[in-house]
């Protein structure tokens, strides 16, 4: 159970990214966050693992307060929360295997990991993770030699290495074409269904929201303007969240 209470984030330049956002995510949920670019989706996700420190408000994972954790506690919390990014965020010059192993850094021996030495168990686990996303044959390739869809699968295998309880996915398919988008989201769905991993995912397309989400939050200008089941989101609600001018742009997504 993840609980967000009265979360507010004001950036040093005065931008209010989040305004008093509260919600709860029960274990095993596939929560979709929707909203315009700049509505605070990325900030919200990054506050959960404190890549960004919120200005006000609290976040609890079970009964542990993430927002007040010290750095050691925070690292222990972070390693239980996998994260997937729109731009994949792989280390381009490192191999696929190394990028996958990076997901294990929170568990690794700090000294040996600095020397680049990994236990065989971690390597086996990494190969298993790559196998699961179907790119075990690319393990020795450099990350930037892979296509966009393949890179995002490395991103997923990196998150798998964390044996996560929660996956934060920040627009994981916004840089991919629709076919690839489904294949990536199916991996997330699989983790959600078979491994009981809670997924919090920001998406833009209504059909994807309906297809994968079990619960939806809508953000507008940093405020929560909608919370409910995916089926409650229709054309009108979507338009309310995305604004009038979104109608044309989003037309295909709505059909």
């Amino acid at each position: 159970m993840l609980r967000v209470e009265h979360l507010t984030k004001v950036y040093p330049n005065g931008t209010v990214a989040l305004k008093d956002v509260s919600f709860e995510v029960p274990d095993g949920e596939f929560l979709v966050v929707i909203g315009l670019s700049g509505s605070g989706k990325s900030t919200l996700l990054r506050c959960i693992n404190r890549l960004i420190d919120p200005t006000e408000g609290k976040i609890f994972l079970d009964d542990q307060e993430i927002t007040s954790a010290n750095s050691t506690e925070l690292r222990h919390i972070r390693r239980k929360i996998g994260m997937i990014f729109q731009q994949f965020n792989l280390v381009k010059r490192s191999t696929v295997l190394t990028n996958t192993l990076n997901g294990r850094l929170g568990y690794a021996n700090p000294f040996l990991s600095l020397l680049g030495i990994w236990p065989q168990a971690d390597k086996d686990m990494a190969m298993a993770a790559l196998n699961r996303v179907g790119i075990a044959d690319k393990a020795k390739n450099r990350a930037d030699a892979l296509s966009g869809g393949q890179q995002q699968r490395v991103g997923i295998s990196r998150a798998l290495m964390q044996e996560p309880r929660i996956i934060l996915a920040d627009e994981p398919v916004a840089s991919l074409d629709p076919v690839l988008a489904h294949s990536i989201l199916q991996y997330l769905e699989q983790m959600n269904k078979t491994d009981r991993v809670t997924v919090i995912c920001s998406l833009h397309f209504l059909d994807l929201v309906h297809r994968y989400g079990t619960h939806v939050i809508g953000l507008k200008d940093g405020m929560k303007v909608f919370e409910g089941a995916p089926s409650e989101i229709d054309r009108a609600r979507f338009k309310a969240i995305y604004g009038e001018e979104a109608q044309e742009v989003r037309a295909t997504a709505l059909e």
Binding site: N49, L51, R75, H76, I77, R78, R79, K80, I81, G82, M83, F85, Q87, F88, N89, L90, V91, K92, R93, S94, T98, N102, G103, R104, L105, G106, Y107, A108, P110, S113, L114, G116, G155, R158, M161, Q162, L168
Partner: peptide, 26 residues
């Protein structure tokens, strides 16, 4: 590129690990 650094921080890596795996390879 700050992306990979952010990603490695998110895995629970400590500061030195972030430098070793996120900064140095770049």
């Amino acid at each position: 590129d700050s992306g990979p650094i952010e990603a490695i921080r998110a895995t629970g890596a400590n500061w030195l690990q972030v430098v070793r795996y996120g900064v140095i390879p770049q």
